[in-house]
Design a protein around this nucleic acid. Structure first.
Length: 1032
RNA sequence: AGUCCUGUAGCUCAAUGGUGGAGCAUCUGUCUUACAAACAGAGGGUUGCAGGUUCAAAUCCUGCCAGGACUACCA
């Protein structure tokens, strides 16, 4: 059975493993959603990546987060669906294809609409799968059988339905407005597709002479060519400098057009000269002013960005050429006052990468107000959707309140063509702005409508424009599930549970989905919106194409594995929604943080190898079933050879289960991931595995078996807990573990991904036990620490004395004596009580050791030990009888001890048992030394003189290690003094606090009590250290 | 300009108002029979600055400073 195990390499190789399981999951349709599954639905629709895109770190981050949520909910029994897909990205695809055509010396009009679209579909078939293939490498548990595309048949019909309905309801209209024009793509774009960039420009000051000949007025502009379209100059009505000019006219230079000086509140008298040139057809503010004052709207620009016939001598020139020429001419006619260097923001087209021109044109718009108000109602009255983190609610709300009508038409071909047909027969066969139109689901329906209105002889031409990609994206959560048809999926999975996305598209996408969903489905499309942060680069900058600072996730996956990358991204998230930073070295393509996660996968791999190597011939189910039975039948007793360490790790495990679930339920994915790291590496690998090693190699078959059971049980639990975060490696190990060492692909599709997530069993969590273990761990650490400080070689076995005045501490130490000896490499361990105020040199087994004559001394020592015990008994009797007659210091000490001893050990049965165990431990440790072959430190059972000892404190346990050979007293002293100084500072601080009446009176009693307890302990530690120092 | 987020060890981040902890990195030891991608140990802090509230502030309030994001832009 275990034959395959030794063949496992000592380093985990993610490359083959990850590909193997990705293929397995997909082939077995493990993630295919079943509407009939009994669980409560848990559905997430993917934020559709752009079909032209390739995987960037933002995708990797977002999808890792979603996959954790999805895998977790699938494992806790929810009916889970993660629906994937892509959007068609009108402008991006069109730009790409036009570039191709341009390389062939053609444009889209040369090839025609149909051929162009054919090419587009060909391109989509050939290259549109890139991003989808890359998503697969992330190991996402999406249901590929339900993959959608915004231009597939179903979604296209949803778009039609939505458009026609909105139009019929008067929520879509057509009109002439100023839109953001992208001369590069020659299309309108929405406000949101505009990216403002700071540029170094100029502010040109131009003089406009008054037509009546007396003086001139000075205006300033960053776009001097627009002066050709000026139809007024505006001043603030309250501006005393210009009041007298209002109503008079100026002569526009070059064109010599007479334009009025108007008064408008919009003008800021304090900026520049306080005079503004007004170009209503080329500036949004001027557009509003133009409407207010009924000014003429003069459009001076063609759609390609060149100037038109209204630009007079500059007709045909590109806008930037014209700008220079206009400036030159203004200078030549002395109308240019001055040129100022000026830093300002210029709107750029997000896709076309060219400066936007505000341009007057006829477009289609969605009337936003009624839909936004509906979404606001859901938010204000039903707190729907819920935003995580909560602060984004305000951003979302502000946006809904201030939304303006949405321009949805794009002068492009790739996309959903607008279902409006112009009755061109009414306008002489031409499609003009005023041509009447009908809106319908298809041409047949359009023709019927047109005939009804305009008679039999109608010629129809469909609107050539397409809809904004976000129009179809706004329908995504329900159109992908089948809307407008009432499908089983829509019934079962809508509204979806959670939407996970970045805050940069709350406006673009989230608000549009809520508006559309509110309107068409009467409910919000998701219950919760989890807004995650950005991935920043190593310099804390947002990763973006324009900054070219992206880090390729595939490069990191190749180097470290998908699991490592996913885990890194998730572990970095603090709380919900915080930005994360990714360490990266651009020269070597290495990332320290991903490497750390890779190391973690390797740690898990090796821990699992260890477990598998030590399980022998086993049947996984039998092994864990047996343990379950034993854990529950006898809890903390040890009849089943389960011991302290076993109960401890089981308790820690269930604690971790509870904590992990709680974190994930509250979107604390980073905390959950970090918690698992600590448990797996810290508790399980560093402590538990080390603790069971001797049992696995020991003689006690029952103890060995118990350890095997616990190892298997906890390891399987770990794999389940970690699966949502690191799906591949956990699947690989789990398959091997449950197949009793075989690592074959299961033929029945059995997978970790469908196993139930661990449930925390409160009965197995034992806080007291964990606390006890903390003392053992602390003690082991202190001994190791003293060893290192004292230059004791790691391989050397030593003697150690642990002394505490606390019964409880002595009990714990005794119970864990074997662990301490094992992990701190202690050969002779003495645990003994110390009376208060008498922390060393009592009449118990003394801790004086000498490095020679060991054999003789040991024999003598054992003898003396026996005599010592007898003496105690004698002293007990003697003291009772002869107390007044036996003076002397030693006897008094002995008597004090005896009284304490009786009280402590002899009055009850349990403490008598403890005494016996202690005695056993002492005997064992002494006998252990007899078998030593080489000279070792050995206890000399004489009270004085004091030896050289390394000393430390943990809790109120004094840890003493006798030192052999030449001892650096100064170093010992330095160490002790340093420790003491630290403790004394703490004592001082605590005393001060307790000496403050305000604190005693006002602080909660519990806090005061805790402070007192801490002070007592600190004082004890200080006493111990001072004592030790005195004896040096 | 407005809104929001973030300033804690060299780096990345923790700490229900109760007196600052991890992981990486560094340094020192160790190839101890799962793992050197490891193990054991150590050092490292005026919590951005200045006030205020409080018995008590990294935490709450105010103002600055720095970084970042978003929105709107003044021609």
């Amino acid at each position: 059975m275990t034959a395959t195990i030794p063949a496992l390499p000592s380093q985990y190789d993610p490359t083959t493993t990850e590909a193997k399981w990705q293929k397995f999951w997909e082939e077995n349709q493990v993630f295919r959603a079943d509407p009939d599954h009994p669980g409560e639905p848990y559905c997430i629709v993917i934020p559709p990546p752009n079909v032209t895109g390739s995987l960037h770190m933002g995708h990797a981050f977002e999808h890792s987060l979603i996959d954790v949520l999805i895998r977790y909910h699938r494992m806790i029994g929810r009916n889970t669906l993660w629906l994937p897909g892509t959007d068609h990205a009108s402008i991006a695809v069109q730009t790409l294809l036009e570039k191709e055509l341009k390389a062939q010396g053609k444009n889209r009009y040369d090839v025609g609409r149909d051929a162009f679209l054919e090419r587009a579909w060909q391109w989509k078939e050939a290259s549109g799968g890139t991003i989808v293939g890359q998503l697969r490498r992330l190991g996402l548990s999406v249901d590929w059988t339900r993959e959608r595309f915004t231009m597939d048949e179903g979604l296209s019909s949803a778009v039609l339905e939505a458009f026609v309905t909105l139009y019929d309801e008067g929520l879509i209209y057509r009109g002439e407005y100023l839109v953001n024009w992208c001369p590069a793509s020659q299309s309108a774009v929405s406000d949101l597709e505009v990216e403002n960039q700071e540029v170094n420009g100029h502010l040109w000051h131009i003089r406009y002479p008054l037509t009546d000949g007396f003086g001139a007025i000075e205006v300033a502009t960053t776009r001097p060519e627009t002066m050709l379209g000026d139809t007024a100059v505006a001043v603030n009505p309250a501006d005393d400098r210009y009041k007298h000019l209002i109503g008079r006219t100026v002569l526009l230079p070059i064109l010599n057009r007479e334009i009025p000086i108007i008064a408008d509140e919009f003008v800021d008298a304090s900026f520049g000269t306080g005079c503004v040139k007004v170009t209503p057809a080329h500036d949004p503010n001027d557009f509003e002013m133009g409407k207010r004052h009924q000014l003429p709207f003069i459009n001076i620009m063609n759609k390609d960005g060149s100037l038109n016939e209204n630009a007079g001598p500059f007709q045909g020139q590109d806008r930037f050429v014209a700008r220079k020429n206009v400036v030159d001419q203004l200078a030549s006619i002395d109308a240019l006052v001055r040129v100022e260097e000026y830093r300002h923001t210029v709107p750029y087209s997000d896709r076309g990468k060219a400066p936007i021109e505000p341009l007057l044109s006829t477009q289609w718009f969605v009337k936003i107000r009624p839909m936004a108000d509906r979404a606001l109602e859901f938010l204000d009255q039903q707190t729907s959707p819920v935003f995580v983190p909560e602060r984004w609610t305000k951003v979302y709300r502000d946006w809904l309140v201030s939304l303006k009508d949405w321009c949805i038409s794009r002068q492009l071909w790739w996309g959903h063509q607008i279902p409006a047909w112009y009755v061109v027969s009414e306008t002489g066969g031409q499609l003009a702005d005023q041509t009447p139109f009908v809106v319908a689901r298809n041409e047949t329906e359009a023709r019927e409508k047109a005939i009804a209105q305009f008679g039999e002889k109608v010629d129809l031409v469909q609107d050539p424009d397409v809809l904004d990609t976000w129009f179809s994206a706004g329908l995504w959560p329900f159109s992908t599930l089948g809307w407008p048809h009432q499908t089983v999926d829509l019934e079962r999975y809508y509204p979806t549970t959670t939407l996970v996305t970045g805050f940069d598209i709350i406006f673009f996408w989230v608000a549009r989905m809520t508006m559309m969903a509110g309107h068409f489905t009467g409910q919000m499309p998701f219950q919760t919106v989890y807004i995650h942060g950005l991935v920043r680069d190593e310099n804390n900058k947002k990763m973006s194409k324009s900054a070219n600072n992206g880090i390729d996730p595939l490069l990191l996956i190749d180097r470290y594995g998908t699991d490592a990358l996913r885990y890194t991204l998730i572990k970095e998230v603090a709380g919900a929604g915080q930005d994360i930073r990714l360490e990266y070295n651009r020269k070597t393509d290495e990332s320290a943080s991903v490497e750390a996660s890779r190391n973690f996968t390797n740690k898990l791999w090796n821990a699992s190898r260890f477990v598998l190597m030590n399980l022998g011939d086993y049947d996984f189910l039998v092994l864990t079933a047996e343990l379950e039975k034993n854990l529950r039948s006898s809890k903390l007793r040890t009849q089943n050879s389960l011991e302290l360490a076993d109960f401890w790790i089981v308790s820690r495990f269930h604690q971790t289960v509870a904590q992990t679930r709680q974190h994930i339920d509250q979107y604390g994915l980073g905390e959950a991931a970090k918690g698992l790291y600590e448990f797996i590496w810290g508790d399980f690998c560093d402590w538990y595995i080390e603790l069971v090693k001797s049992r696995l190699q020991g003689e006690d078959a029952h103890s060995k078996q118990a350890a095997q059971q616990v190892l298997a049980y906890v390891l399987e639990g770990i794999l389940k807990l970690l699966h949502p975060f690191m799906p591949h490696i956990t699947e690989e190990i789990w398959q091997t573990l449950v197949q009793s060492g075989q690592a074959t692909l299961p033929t029945d599709g059995t997978t970790l991904a469908l196993q139930p997530y661990p449930i925390a069993d409160r009965d197995l969590i034992n806080a007291d036990l964990e606390q006890q273990f903390d003392l053992l761990i602390g003690t082991i650490r202190t001994i190791r620490n003293l060893r290192a400080d004292s230059d004791i070689k790691p391989g050397t076995k030593i003697s150690t004395v642990l002394q505490s005045e606390s019964d409880r501490e002595c009990q714990i130490l005794t119970a864990g004596a074997a662990y301490i000896k094992d992990l701190a490499k202690v050969e002779a361990l003495t645990i003994r009580p110390s009376t208060p105020g008498c922390t060393s040199g009592t009449a118990t087994v003394d801790s004086t050791f000498q490095p020679d004559n060991q054999r003789l001394l040991v024999i003598g020592g054992v003898g003396l030990g026996i005599i010592f015990v007898i003496k105690i008994i004698q002293a007990l009797l003697g003291a009772l009888d002869e107390l007044p007659l036996v003076p002397g210091f030693l006897q008094l000490v002995g008597f004090g001890y005896i009284l304490w001893f009786i009280y402590r050990y002899l009055l009850s049965e349990t403490t008598r048992e403890e005494l016996y165990q202690r005695y056993q431990a002492i005997v064992e440790s002494s006998l252990g030394q007899i078998s030593l072959a080489t000279p070792e430190p050995v206890p000399q059972l004489v009270a004085s003189p004091q030896p050289q000892m390394a000393a430390g404190v943990v809790g109120t346990v004094q840890v003493l290690i006798p030192l052999a050979g030449v001892v650096d007293v100064a170093a010992l002293r330095g160490k002790l003094e340093k420790d003491l100084a630290k403790i004394e500072a703490e004592v001082q601080s605590l005393s001060n606090r307790l000496g403050n009446p305000g604190f005693i009176n006002k602080a909660p009693a519990e806090v005061v009590q805790n402070t007192r307890t801490t002070l007592e302990e600190a004082e004890k530690q200080a006493t111990i250290l001072r004592d030790r120092l005195n004896q040096l």
